[in-house]
Design a protein around this nucleic acid. Structure first.
Lengths: 226, 226
DNA sequence: GTTTAATTTAAACACTTGTTTAATTTTATT
DNA sequence: AATAAAATTAAACAAGTGTTTAAATTAAAC
């Protein structure tokens, strides 16, 4: 473990790149393979031997680089969830109508999660696993930031008189992300239902029809008069 | 395995009870424990030894009664998802305003899934696991039935001129169940956010606030004029 | 009460798990 | 070229996995 720490520090000095210390071709390769396998077979369902086989490395390299399987998961979450936060913060600065902002917010959510579906599926899987609590703290912080962004956009719309005021702001994200995830989790079912034969057709359905449905739903919730 | 089959048949003769052959106090006990543990720790994360310890039975009894761990999961799904279908079919027969029917539909979904949250969480977990495909066929049939029910209710409302016609009916269930599940999956987060200190407070929030939010959302989607 | 079948048990099975070791090879530094 | 550090390896570790076996116990049938 002493070796490992030294190695990390040296790497961070050598790699003058952006991110938090630990970037390295081989490590990223391992992370990508881990994402794929965790997503397909779950965290417990994936063995380090599976990962090393697929990544064509020795079994010991995972412990060598990350310390343990658990810490590999932590690194994976950190590595794959950084940019969503940035994109939302940028959206807040943009000068747009509240309704347009909400629409764009949904677009960002869907496309972002869709792009990193692997890790978000893992997160979804492991979210309620008590063993995994520690690894998921970083994710909780992300969620808090996201909620702040949604709150700010909607309150802006409310003070402009465009949005209803008797809505539960904190439950809007669950509706947006929940709809998307339920669709994704039941992928097989909807592929059959909508006759989506290829990966491309499936993704197209998401970026068009599903996104539109979510936007329509949230818009209706925010503006309709009963 | 020969012994097992014989045993099952004899049981079904002795037990003159309702259900599909295989009911038995000890088996139900095992199923309940399995539901709890699978839900807490996932299917792969739960060992037969965990189950036998918690259920206070011998390790061999699971294989003896169900054949294998995989078949235990199949039995569990079948045993826990029968009644939702019935409740929805009853709802279809009721003489209610379309909007009231939708409201009640959401109530049924939420309460039903909430009551059996264990097994639905397992389903959610294992849904995309290719290894589990066979065990989940029964669940696909359930989903198809549910979709039929939703379709029939909404088309009724549309033909009465109460509901919009430019909505994606097939995506309404994802919004209902997805919202609920996302809330449930991120339980820790929302417990903190809404200061829900006890199990009771959490469940109350679901049956009141969350249900209301979903009903409000779907109502808005169905009736608002843009 | 004896016999037969069903249940329950502890032990063993072969296999997989995450992690560590110590030796080797590769890379970097002087 | 020699030295030191880092990366990689195969082998071993102890612990846990699902399942099977064969013997022991309990219950049912006669």
């Amino acid at each position: 473990m002493f070796k490992l720490n030294k190695c990390l520090i040296l790497h961070s000095i050598r790699n003058t790149t952006m991110s938090n210390i630990e970037l390295n071709d081989k490590k990223i390769q391992i992370l990508n393979v881990a994402e794929k396998l965790f997503s397909d077979k779950g965290f417990e369902g994936t063995s380090i031997r599976d990962i090393s086989k697929e990544a064509k490395i020795n079994i010991a390299m995972v412990s060598y680089y990350f310390g343990s399987k658990e810490k590999l998961l932590e690194a994976l979450i950190l590595h794959k969830t950084v940019d969503l936060k940035l994109q939302l913060e940028n959206l807040l600065q943009e000068n747009l109508e509240p309704l347009e902002k909400v629409k764009k917010l949904i677009e960002i959510y869907v496309s972002r999660i869709c792009l990193n579906k692997g890790i978000y599926r893992v997160l979804h899987f492991e979210l309620n696993n008590k063993k995994r609590e520690k690894s998921l703290n970083a994710f909780t912080e992300l969620k808090k930031g996201n909620l702040k962004a949604v709150e700010s956009i909607i309150k802006q719309g409310q003070s402009q008189g465009v949005f209803r005021k008797d809505i539960n702001i904190q439950l809007i994200t669950p509706t947006i992300i929940g709809t998307f995830f339920h669709f994704h989790m039941n992928r097989h079912f909807f592929e059959e239902l909508f006759d989506l034969k290829t990966e491309e057709m499936f993704n197209n359905y998401i970026t068009n029809d599903l996104t539109k449905h979510i936007q329509q739903t949230i818009k209706a919730l925010l503006v309709y008069e009963n």
